[in-house]
């Protein structure tokens, strides 16, 4: 699969729910439709809840990947304002 280049990356390691999603949402709000956000996080529950919430908000989840023992990377494409 072709690697997607994010337009913005945020590191929310150390944050727990709901601030993981709050920070992600604030980041995506400031982006243009079609742009891609990469989120680096280490709170296990958020690796499931962020993709679900982003889909509920109408965005496209492009990737959810555990990259090492502690961290996940989630990639979201903004689909709507």
């Amino acid at each position: 699969m072709e690697e997607i280049k994010p337009d913005k990356t945020i590191n929310i390691k150390g944050l727990v729910c709901p601030y993981t999603f709050v920070k992600s949402k604030l980041a995506i709000e400031d982006m243009e439709v079609g742009e891609v956000l990469e989120i680096v996080l280490d709170y296990p529950e958020a690796s499931r809840s962020i993709p679900k919430s982003m889909e509920d908000h109408g965005h496209k989840v492009l990737k959810v990947e555990k990259v090492n023992d502690t961290d996940w990377v989630i990639v979201i494409r903004k689909e709507r304002d």
């Binding site: 709901p18 709050v22 949402k25 604030l26 919430s53």
Partner: peptide, 23 residues
């Protein structure tokens, strides 16, 4: 821009699709 304290204080607003940081 919302500061960290505001992000915490208004987090239950920001989560709502109808509000968000913009609202």
């Amino acid at each position: 821009e919302l500061n960290d304290e505001q992000i915490h204080r208004y987090s239950r607003h920001i989560i709502l699709p109808e509000v968000g940081g913009k609202g």
